[in-house]
Amino acid sequence: MNGRRQFMAILRKDLIRELRTREMIISMILFVLLAMVIFHYAFSVKEDADLTYFTGGMLWVTFIFAMLLGLNRSFAQEKDERCLDGLLLCPVDRVTIFLAKTAGNLIFLLIIQVVAVPVFTLFFVSRSYVGDLPQFLVVLLLADLGICALGTLLATISMSTRSRDLLLPIIFLPLIVPVLIAATGATTLIFAEGAGFGDLLARVLFLLGFDAIFMVAAYGTYDFAIGE
């Protein structure tokens, strides 16, 4: 099998497993909706407060925390059922495993975003940003890729340790702050001010650079992260 077919096989396996149980997606979507409600109560400090300026931040905080949940789940199953050992015994390049896992996590994140973004918009954003959707989608995809690539690498490490789901947030959150800063800034500019690509150029390039750097770093270190 060549790399592309291996990649597709691993990705398909992850998607099928999730479609059969749906436990990860459902809990992630519920988490996102609950987070929205929590944010609503946490920020309702005065009547008719306009939360447009805070929506970008709420969204990205929610996505990052939801991703933590998802990452923990996706690797816990691999480990508990010893699927990973089987996968490692196959003549598959470790980097292919990384790419397939990242793609799988990206798809899950996109699914919850399809639910979350409209709902958050409906509840919190006071102006329509339909015309600015292209730039929002670019920001969303670039930030997602960074979150998933870094998240997959770190989840691979944390799942092989004694305190898996406790460790992941501690090593993941400080590393993801740059993406949070850039993505939140860009999203807020789009939601609140309808910023175009010109205004967002620096942030978009930054996210692109972040993705590229950490894809390369993960490419170089994944062999060691997955072990054996």
Partner: peptide, 22 residues
């Protein structure tokens, strides 16, 4: 694991500094 993390962390430092400029 510590080595992998030390590499990733050190790469992240200048990126974080750059991001805080936003």
């Amino acid at each position: 694991f510590a080595a992998v993390f030390a590499i990733i962390a050190f790469i992240d430092v200048p990126i974080t500094f750059f991001a805080t400029r936003f």
